[in-house]
Amino acid sequence: MGPRAIILPTLLSLLGACAGALNDPIVTEVHRRSTSDRARVLVVLLPGAGDRVGTYEKHGFVQSMRASGMDVDMLEVDAHYGYYRSRTLMDRMEHDVLAPNREHYEAIWLVGISMGGIGALLTAWTFPDDVDGLVLMAPYLGRRKTLKQIEQAGGLAAWEPPAAVDGEKAWDVEIWRMLKRMSETPRPGEPELYLMFGRDDFGVRAHELLAAGLAPEQVKTAPGGHAWSTWTTLWNQLLAERPIDG
């Protein structure tokens, strides 16, 4: 059993109390660029805690993408908290999102807000060959203990992640290990990464820690906190640069 198989269930149990298995297919809603054919790129939208499928459209993300003219189809996924709590998120992302689409698109990007940000990172970590880009908006990035260790080391560049994987204590260490690698010497085919957050977000400590290890063009900030008004501003900034259509 590989380290992902050990750590992932532990991570999901830490994100919520144990519950009965939820293995229902994830409800999805597709927004195609054209009614006649698929676009070149698929953008998968993962919701935050308390949000459900349709929330991105409600807040104008789909309409803004359409107005940009980019060659993109969008897929909202109802990856709600129950899938994290029941430890089935990765199975469902594989069966309901990645497997049905990987042969039909040149690239798959994941957009995740808050809880959806850690879902996007977990997906990229678990299925690295299936994810070409990540847009993380105010993502949850792990425990205060791990953040403190990185800070005390002098930042992401100076931090040396432990060599050993220690079950229950290692899930966010593994996520940060991946982020460190992506920020320094990305492997061929490593996903592109964009981080966006409000400067008054309650998670700004973690966001700034990651931002310090990224190139300036990979980071976008705006006034505001952990709110859709902030994320809408950031989304429109990103679309103006058209990185997903590159």
Rank of each mutant, 00 (worst) to 15 (best):
G2Q: 08
G2E: 09
P3C: 08
I7H: 03
P9V: 11
T10P: 00
L11T: 03
S13Q: 12
L14D: 14
A17G: 15
C18G: 15
A21S: 15
P25G: 06
T28G: 05
E29H: 10
H31Y: 15
R33A: 14
R33G: 12
D37E: 15
R40Y: 06
L42W: 09
V44M: 08
P47L: 03
R52N: 07
G54R: 04
T55C: 12
H59C: 01
Q63R: 15
M65F: 09
A67N: 05
M70C: 14
D73A: 06
M74E: 10
L75W: 02
L75M: 11
L75Q: 04
E76P: 06
E76R: 02
D78H: 13
H80P: 00
Y81N: 11
G82H: 07
Y83N: 00
Y84V: 04
Y84W: 11
L89P: 00
D91P: 00
D91Y: 05
E94G: 01
H95K: 12
D96C: 11
A99M: 11
N101E: 08
N101G: 08
E103C: 13
A107S: 13
W109R: 00
M115I: 03
I118P: 03
I118V: 15
I118R: 01
A124S: 14
A124K: 02
D129Y: 03
D130V: 09
L134W: 01
L136R: 00
L141F: 14
G142P: 05
G142M: 05
R143T: 15
T146S: 12
Q149C: 13
I150A: 14
Q152F: 12
Q152D: 15
G154I: 15
G155E: 07
A158P: 00
A163S: 12
A163L: 14
A164G: 06
A164Y: 01
V165K: 09
V165D: 13
V165R: 11
E168M: 13
A170Q: 00
D172K: 08
V173L: 12
E174Y: 07
I175A: 08
M178P: 02
K180N: 04
S183H: 07
P186T: 06
P188Q: 11
P188G: 12
P188D: 10
Y194A: 09
Y194I: 13
L195Q: 04
V204R: 04
R205F: 01
R205D: 11
H207G: 03
L209F: 08
A211F: 01
L214F: 07
P216K: 13
G225R: 03
A227G: 12
T230E: 02
T230S: 04
T232F: 09
T232Q: 15
N236P: 07
A240K: 07
A240T: 09
E241V: 08
I244F: 04
D245H: 09
D245R: 03
G246Y: 09
